[in-house]
Write a protein that binds this DNA or RNA. Sequence first.
DNA 1: CTTCGTATTTTGATTCATCAAAATAAATCT
DNA 2: AGATTTATTTTGATGAATCAAAATACGAAG
Lengths: 229, 229
Amino acid sequence: MASSTVENYLKQLYLEQPASDGEMVPMGRLAVAMGVVPGTATSMVKALADSGLVQYEPRGGVRLTASGSQLALHVLRRHRLVELFLVKVLGLDWSVVHDEADALEHAISDRVLERMDVLLGHPTADPHGDPIPTAEGHVHEPHRMSLADCALGVPQRIARVLDQEPEFLQFVERQGLVPGAIVTVGKRESAAEAVKILVRNGEEVSLGLVAAAKILVEPPQGAASAAAP
Amino acid sequence: MASSTVENYLKQLYLEQPASDGEMVPMGRLAVAMGVVPGTATSMVKALADSGLVQYEPRGGVRLTASGSQLALHVLRRHRLVELFLVKVLGLDWSVVHDEADALEHAISDRVLERMDVLLGHPTADPHGDPIPTAEGHVHEPHRMSLADCALGVPQRIARVLDQEPEFLQFVERQGLVPGAIVTVGKRESAAEAVKILVRNGEEVSLGLVAAAKILVEPPQGAASAAAP
DNA sequence: CTTCGTATTTTGATTCATCAAAATAAATCT
DNA sequence: AGATTTATTTTGATGAATCAAAATACGAAG
């Protein structure tokens, strides 16, 4: 059995790994992501490499192996299914479920997870629009534009929010920019680094480019995605 | 924050402690209950004593302090609420929820627990009939007879099953001896160490005295107790 | 009261995950 | 190239939880 620590390292590596291209994650980035000093990451990664879960090249970085990815995806599946469960069944706010799921994802058995999956109707995305890997470890991450680079004047459906900070999520919710909402980007002021968003209810929201880039959109004709919080 | 290990020691001590009289639990019993060698129990208990969670008398044994009991009861509350949740909401079999809850009880936040409690309607007993402590740490453990010592020929309602072994629980379920069921003890053969039970549906079940002692009953006029599995 | 046996405690090691700080390699900048 | 900065790895230590095995205390039995 992989310890919680091992599961967390693998999950984090998966999230840091730019797409599934063969790029290596530098040690420094992993250490920061895990909140440990660099030396800790090095020794941990060596252990992971001995277990065949990652490939490690000294001073080159680290990359998940096939079995490492597999395990990471199972952890991610647990995490995201739990998030959705907490929102849909227990009625928690979507801004807090990330932290709750971080604790629960290591304690949930396959048996329990399976029941949650059935109860939720085999969902494909969590409350933030992040895709839920299948039990077999497959994920589909569609290529998406964000509010920072999508077409202007065309209605867009919000598909995913790439930030788990409760403060950001609460702000996003207050502005009605939750997954499923239809919005239009009115104008981009590159000088001001700001984007003007027209929300369906007539409101107008201004977003910095950094924030706008965290909100991914899709054409509204596509099937509805995540559960609105 | 108390580690999972600490929580487990406290929970186990609470369960070993004969009622709430001031008796001390001998180290050996604790070690067996925790599945560790005696020396481990000793050093752990010393640490617990330093944190003020138990009172430890070398060669005398160990006893929970007020704050230790409080913490133990919170763990027990999590454990039992989770058990009921798994049965009622996720539809798991009552014979497996004990082990699932052992893992989950350390990962569930007060926030999540509170939602479960509300969703379940502030239940007072888990699927085995074990009482659920309140959030304030109070439990009521009524004084009950068992099938091994209750009156003969009088209908009894099964209130609680004192064994978490899946095998035993599955047997109990097959025989219809689940909490809530009404049964009558027909005869006790002290020589054969056996008890003859008449189940409501006309069936007749024979139980060894040891098994019978694990099934607690109450007078049927009392309010219905646990949720039947 | 001495001896025996069992329960308990001590002692010394081990594993996991971590940090602090020193050592080293690689990259960057004159 | 030579010097300096930055990233990474090593090394040595620490705390939590554990085990194996030796040492010790206690109660019971002769």
